[in-house]
C-alpha cells in the first residue's frame, strides 16, 4: 500500500529549540491519528505537511511531492489549523466564497458547495448571516472544518479539530471524518487526547518531544508493546520473599513493597522474558499468590507513560 506521507530523517529546529528530531515514518491511506502532548511537535509536523514550514533537514513528501511552495499539491490538501482565529468581520458564506475562488472553483460550483459544506459541518443555518467574530468556539471549529472541505481535497489535515466542540459536536465530526474516509479521502488528524482518536483512527503516530514514540496500526503498536517495560501488581502471602527471588533473577527494573496489605508492585524489565520464567520461579518460592493485575498494556497506558 502506497504511503500518503513519507518522512525520512526529518528534523525541524527553531533556532536552538527542537521541534522535530530526526523522525522517519509513513502515513498509510485512510484515517491516521497524530497523538502527543502539547509541545510534542504535532503542529510543526502538520505545518511541514501543509507547506507552511520547511524541514531543517531530511525530507517529507505528501502524495509523492514536497509541499513547500507547491500549488499543485496544495490544491489536493485541505487544512484546518489548531487556533480558533477566523476573520471576525466576515460572514461564513463570504469567507468560503473567497477561499473557493482562491482554490480555483468556478462561481457556480462555489455557490453549490458553500451551502452544502456548511450543512455538512452542521453549522446551524440561523448563524450563516452573522459575522464570524461573534461565533462560539464550537461554531468556529465547524467553519474552519468547512473551509478545509470546500475544495474536496484528497488529503485532509486537521490540527486538533475537536477542541471546543461539545460531545455531540465531537460525535458529528467523527462521523463526518469516517464518511470522508469511506469516500477515499485520507485524513491526518492531531489531538493531545488519545481517547478522541483511538476509536476513530486505524493508524496512530505517537509523538513526544519531537520524536516518534510509536507508529503503525493500533494492532501493530499493541504487539510492539510486548517489548516495553510493564507494571504488575501482585497480592501474595510473602511479597518480600517474592521480590527477592525476582530481583536475583534480574527480571525487574524496580519494585514497591506494601507488607501490611501483602502487595508487591513490580516494574518488569522485559515482559516476554518475565512471563517465560515467572511461573517456575513462583512455584519454587512457595509464595501463595492471591491476585495479579497488569497495570499498563493499552495504547492509552503507553501514552500516559510517555507523556507523564
Amino acid at each position: 500500500m502506497n504511503a500518503i506521507i513519507q518522512a525520512r530523517e526529518l528534523s525541524r529546529w527553531y533556532g536552538i529549540v527542537m521541534g522535530l528530531n530526526n523522525i522517519s515514518f509513513e502515513v498509510p491511506p485512510g484515517l491516521t491519528g497524530l497523538v502527543g502532548p502539547n509541545g510534542a511537535g504535532k503542529s510543526t509536523l502538520l505545518q511541514i505537511v501543509t507547506g507552511q514550514l520547511q524541514p531543517s533537514s531530511g525530507t517529507l513528501t505528501v502524495l509523492g511531492e514536497r509541499p513547500w511552495n507547491n500549488p499543485r499539491l496544495l490544491g489536493r490538501i485541505g487544512f484546518c489549523p489548531e487556533h480558533e482565529a477566523i476573520p471576525a468581520d466576515l460572514r461564513p458564506g463570504d469567507w468560503l466564497r473567497a477561499l473557493g475562488l482562491i482554490s480555483g472553483l468556478s462561481p457556480a460550483e462555489i455557490e453549490r458547495r458553500v451551502e452544502a459544506t456548511l450543512e455538512r459541518v452542521k453549522l446551524d443555518r440561523a448563524h450563516w448571516g452573522r459575522l464570524m467574530g461573534g461565533y462560539s468556539k464550537g461554531m468556529r471549529q465547524r467553519v474552519k472544518l468547512a473551509q478545509a472541505l470546500l475544495h474536496e481535497p484528497e488529503l485532509l489535515v486537521l490540527d486538533e479539530p475537536m477542541n471546543g466542540l461539545d460531545p455531540l459536536g465531537r460525535q458529528e465530526t467523527a462521523r463526518l471524518l469516517r464518511d470522508l474516509a469511506g469516500q477515499g479521502v485520507h485524513v491526518l488528524i492531531s489531538s493531545h487526547i488519545l481517547a478522541e482518536l483511538e476509536p476513530l483512527c486505524e493508524s496512530i503516530l505517537l509523538l513526544n518531544w519531537g520524536r516518534i514514540v510509536a507508529s503503525g496500526s493500533q494492532e501493530q503498536i499493541r504487539a510492539n508493546l510486548k517489548h516495553w517495560p510493564e507494571a504488575l501488581r501482585v497480592r501474595c502471602s510473602d511479597p518480600a520473599r517474592l521480590a527477592r527471588i525476582l530481583v536475583e533473577d534480574d527480571l525487574l527494573l524496580g519494585f514497591d513493597l506494601e507488607p501490611e496489605s501483602g502487595v508487591l508492585s513490580l516494574r518488569v524489565r522485559e515482559a516476554e522474558a518475565f512471563y517465560e520464567r515467572w511461573a517456575g520461579r513462583l512455584l519454587e518460592s512457595g509464595v501463595a499468590v492471591y491476585e495479579i493485575r497488569r497495570l499498563d498494556r493499552s495504547l492509552r497506558d503507553l501514552y500516559d507513560k510517555v507523556t507523564a
Partner: peptide, 21 residues
Amino acid sequence: SAPAVTHRGSPSPTPGAAFRP
C-alpha cells in the same frame, strides 16, 4: 465507541482533480 475505520481507497482517489486557479 465505534470501531476504527479501515480505509479501502487508493492513495490518490482522484489524481489530478485538484483545481488550478
